[in-house]
């Protein structure tokens, strides 16, 4: 959507596939306004005398449209026995590094596929593509999160194989992605030790909806003031049943715990 005036709901969203030697030009900005903005206010005032109006009771769930699309995505994925994980975090927590390492380590045990969400560029999709995994990049333009409609378009473009383990890397943002169900099987929140162990208390919506918390960059723990047990305790204050693993995607430390969690939801994986 256009952040300036709120027009054109999804017109800033682009779904791109990545091919070898084909770096699609990242500088397109298709944000042209598709319509003129009518300013003929003389026809538009809602200055209707109160006595002339009718009350209509709606009781509509505001997120119903997204949730309906998400339910359709979930059925689509289930019919194909695809496990989809929605990875969410702040920018820079190491989601892409974790994914690259995971895809490399898992090899060809099960089919894998990746949907990358970022406001701009194909940089992350290029990194995933280098592992050999099928990937599409969703660029949200001004958008701060993926929604179920973007997920549907990405699924149509990616067309993951039956039985795939599908990783969806959401736009880096600890706030907005928490609101939008994509139809995923489970939600994974990644936090890095450089961010501070109080993040679960500052951004409770994100942690409240998660199935797994991955604490990444454990190799940096000697250099930062981050208390793993305090972070875990804070996260469980908003989500008592939350699973937690501590890893370093760079050194490989602790990744066994992450792979065991993946195996728990995709039993065909050997850890």
């Amino acid at each position: 959507m256009c952040a300036t005036c709120g027009c054109g709901n999804d017109e800033g969203t682009r779904v791109s596939t990545v091919h070898a030697h084909d770096h699609a030009h990242p500088h397109e900005h298709p944000h042209e306004h598709p319509h003129a903005h009518p300013h003929e206010h003389e026809h538009m005032h809602a200055g209707v005398p109160v006595g002339d109006t009718q009350t209509r009771t709606l009781e509509l769930d505001i997120l119903a449209k997204n949730d309906t699309l998400a339910a359709t995505n979930r059925e689509w994925l289930t019919a194909r026995e695809i496990i989809a994980l929605n990875l969410m975090s702040s920018p820079g927590s190491g989601k892409t590094t974790l994914l690259v390492r995971t895809l490399t380590d898992l090899g060809t045990q099960v089919p894998v596929a990746v949907i990358e969400g970022d406001q701009e560029t194909l940089l992350d999709a290029d990194r995933i593509h280098a592992t050999g995994a099928p990937v599409v990049q969703v660029n949200t333009g001004a958008g701060c999160h993926l929604d179920a409609d973007m997920m549907r378009k990405a699924l149509e473009s990616l067309d993951p194989a039956d039985g795939s383990l599908l990783f969806v890397e959401n736009v880096g943002n600890l706030v907005c992605p928490a609101m939008f169900d994509l139809g995923e099987t489970a939600k994974v929140v990644v936090i890095s030790v450089t961010e501070g162990d109080d993040k679960p208390l500052k951004y409770p919506q994100m942690f409240a909806g998660a199935n797994l918390l991955v604490i990444n960059k454990s190799d940096l723990l000697p250099y930062v003031d981050f208390d793993v047990s305090a972070c875990t305790e804070h996260a469980r204050r908003v989500n008592p049943g939350l699973d937690v693993v501590v890893v370093s995607a760079t050194t490989g430390d602790g990744l066994t715990g992450w792979y065991e969690w993946l195996q728990h939801i995709q039993p065909q994986l050997a850890v």
């Binding site: 209707v48 109160v50 109006t53 009718q54 009350t55 009781e59 409770p204 008592p240």
Partner: peptide, 28 residues
């Protein structure tokens, strides 16, 4: 959303406060 009961338990279910709906509209 910090779910802590005065009894010390964090095992608290949210009953209300998550509403997000259009209740009604007035139309001409």
């Amino acid at each position: 959303l910090i779910l802590l009961c005065p009894c010390g338990s964090a095992d608290v279910a949210v009953v209300s406060g998550r509403e997000l709906s259009v209740q009604s509209i007035e139309v001409a």
